[in-house]
């Protein structure tokens, strides 16, 4: 039961990183890939169908953390209070931008909301980087490892976002004008550059971990994951990068989650059986509904959305 619950927590965190990585990353890259109001609207139209359905994974992970792993939650809150508070602020600002963007028809209003989306996305990615460093080294510390780890995670989000943009910013509506098609090209081109930069950061992070900072985290499983990350990023850096990035970016951004699961020095306590049975017995009947909803939403919105929805 304990192992199953831990697997559930890991699944929710990795699910969040893979799914939300796409829309958070694209939000970060909006100033780079979108020129002008029409292209910015396209970017938001690409993000909008997913942000609600991807952030619920994180909310669920937080719920599981609080209900089944209170000791772990306590550890995270004590060690990471400032980072998590900033993360929450970034999350709030980003989502407020998304919810409110289409509500007032004014160029300046949309500019402010787009600014909130971009700033919030960057804050989220950076906070996750700091949180990862803090969890891996058993507490926040101002050192090269923390800095490099944060840069790597920001790179992973950006890579995921550019891969997502390369796929989603093209479509029937974009073909009318060649200026729109540029968005996807810029994003596709970005995958290789970002993969290279992130590869460099990842290698340096691993090196700094090995050299000093976090001896307990740098065991064989962590090294294997770091190697896998470097390999995946190296593949994406090449000529085939834009083609492969859809899958490689997903694998790459999942690795920080797995790294925490297998290598971080985290406190653990056996879950009292009654609570575990209660949670699992209530959860299992609902899992099919959760699954159907997610799959349906992602399948339904595969085709580029109507330009004008509630969010755009």
């Amino acid at each position: 039961m304990d192992l199953l619950s831990a697997a559930l927590l890991a699944l929710l965190v990795v699910g969040y990183l893979v799914l939300a990585g796409a829309d958070v990353g694209l939000g970060m890259l909006m100033p780079h890939v979108a020129r002008g109001p029409a292209q910015r609207r396209r970017v938001v139209a690409a993000i909008a169908p997913y942000f609600l359905a991807s952030e619920v994974w994180l909310v669920a992970a937080l719920g599981v953390l609080a209900g089944l792993f209170p000791a772990l939650e306590h550890h995270a809150v004590v060690e990471l209070w400032p980072v998590l508070t900033v993360l929450l602020a970034g999350w709030l600002v980003r989502d407020a931008g998304l919810w409110l963007r289409a509500r007032v028809d004014g160029e300046r209003w949309r500019l402010v909301c787009d600014g909130a989306i971009v700033a919030g996305s960057w804050t989220l990615a950076a906070s996750w980087g700091l949180a990862l460093a803090g969890l891996l080294s058993g507490g926040l510390a101002m050192n090269p490892f923390t800095l490099l780890c944060t840069v790597t995670v920001i790179g992973l989000f950006a890579l995921r976002g550019s891969a997502f943009g390369a796929e989603r910013l093209v479509g029937p509506a974009a073909c009318g004008t060649d200026r729109d098609a540029e968005c996807a090209d810029v994003a596709a081109h970005g995958t290789r550059l970002i993969a290279r930069a992130t590869l460099g950061a990842a290698v340096l992070t691993t090196a700094s971990a090995l050299l000093s900072a976090t001896p307990e985290a740098a065991g064989p499983p962590a090294l294997a994951l770091a190697l896998l990350l470097s390999a995946v990023l190296a593949v994406t850096s090449g000529l085939l990068g834009p083609m492969l990035s859809r899958h490689t970016s997903a694998v790459a951004i999942a690795i920080p989650g797995l790294l925490v699961a297998v290598a971080a020095p985290l406190p653990s306590a056996p879950i009292p059986p009654t609570t575990a049975v209660f949670v699992w017995a209530t959860l299992v009947p609902v899992v099919p509904v959760m699954f159907v909803g997610q799959v349906w939403l992602y399948r339904m919105t595969r085709r580029p959305a109507d330009e004008r929805t509630f969010f755009t």
């Binding site: 619920v56 909310v59 669920a60 937080l62 719920g63 599981v64 609080a66 209900g67 089944l68 209170p70 609570t275 209660f278 949670v279 209530t282 959860l283 609902v286 959760m290």
Partner: peptide, 10 residues
Amino acid sequence: AAPLALETMT
């Protein structure tokens, strides 16, 4: 927090 965990998921 167990009911809250169930709230987030179910």
